[in-house]
Design a protein around this nucleic acid. Structure first.
Lengths: 213, 213
DNA sequence: TAAAAAAGTGTCGAAACCACACTTTATGTT
DNA sequence: AACATAAAGTGTGGTTTCGACACTTTTTTA
């Protein structure tokens, strides 16, 4: 028998910061909270951990419920545990961030939940401590993208170097010199040119690249 | 009224990875679990979150109970939420790492709890997922010390450059060239020479340094 | 007084990083 | 048809950072 009986129990929620890259901007998927407290306020995508699922699985489930996506790049950010962070009842939240390709998610599911993309640099006031969470996650992916090719999760299968650069710029919040960027990227070995040319986004046409597996 | 009633609640624990620097090695404070499940097994310092404290406060309280220390460098590592991670009952654990000066903690308190220092490179098998937690925390402080002067939390007030280098080596698990190390450190501006000379640790005597505030 | 032990100190080459400007190519407009 | 526009694509040189590398100094102990 365990000796835990006398300890209190808590609601444990999961909040997901779902990043997407759209119109040259880093976006976050938010929706209106459908229940109290904070009903009608803008909120991250979230839900409660269930009895028979791990916290990680819970995050995956919630992501799937809102986007239809599985097998997504998703990492834990932190646990938020202030006593009064949720004004209704005490809830401890474990926060995840996910990077998704905005061409793939299920827009019908998103509509059902009133989910919409907002620019990460122009975030509305979100409920509770959700703005803090987004800032922290944004900083985190900025650190990670300097070393790891996580951009593959945000971009379409084929992309131009200009688009890739725009992605880096919008994540890092800086502008990057085009030649330096291209040199740095070509020294890594995770992207490769396909023979294809994209004629949509420029008059001249640009080589399409893809991430290697 | 909130709509949370139907959701399950969980025990939430805090585990603390308390790092210290002793005998030229990075150490972790562990003790024998005094209750089931896993009674008698080696365990990180931990406890349960209480009703009226935040998770952060809970970590501080637990650290204080085992070491007598307050105002310690302490950061959240992650939440661990596998369903079966604790074989007794479902417990979600939020893990913190702390860096303490081993000269300052309350050894009587530590004795009461059967706490002892073990070398982080020669860790016994700990209960549950505690070994994973330590590995992750160790990696984390390795990353952080490259950029931030967190060594100040582990060292005595005055220290020699050799001791500082040994600290870096034991955290990073590498050996570092003495001249390169001294150059790198002197380019930062967070330590300064005191006029004092330490005659204990070497025949010749070495300049004592301290961290600036 | 000789041996031992740790402190302390500088240089050079390689690699990474940053700033910087013009040509090419296709399209759309006049 | 030619001209304007818009984005693609491409190289160099200076600066800074990083890593490798060895000997002298100082004091204690045998």
């Amino acid at each position: 028998m365990t000796a835990y009986k006398s300890y209190p129990k808590f609601f444990v929620s999961v909040d997901c910061i779902i990043f997407g890259f759209k119109d040259g901007c880093l976006k976050v998927l938010i929706h209106q909270r459908p229940y109290e407290p904070g009903m009608g306020e803008q909120s991250l995508i979230g839900g409660f951990v269930q009895k028979n699922e791990s916290v990680d699985s819970s995050a995956k489930r919630i992501l799937r419920e809102f986007t239809g996506l599985d097998n997504v790049y998703m990492q834990q950010l932190a646990a938020y545990g202030e006593v009064e962070r949720d004004p209704g009842e005490r809830v401890i939240s474990v926060v995840y961030y996910a990077l998704i390709n905005v061409d793939n998610y299920d827009t019908q599911l998103a509509d059902i939940h009133n989910a919409k993309w907002v620019d990460v640099d122009d975030l509305p006031t979100l409920c509770f401590d959700h703005n803090d969470m987004v800032q922290k996650a944004r900083h985190m992916i900025g650190e990670i993208i300097k070393n790891e090719p996580i951009g593959c999760n945000l971009l379409p299968r084929y992309f131009t170097l200009s688009l890739l650069q725009t992605l880096y710029e919008s994540i890092l919040g800086t502008s990057i010199d085009k030649r330096n960027f291209r040199r740095a990227i070509s020294e890594k070995d995770y992207i490769q040119a396909t023979g294809m040319i994209d004629k949509e986004s420029s008059r001249r046409g640009a080589t399409l690249y893809r991430f290697k597996k």
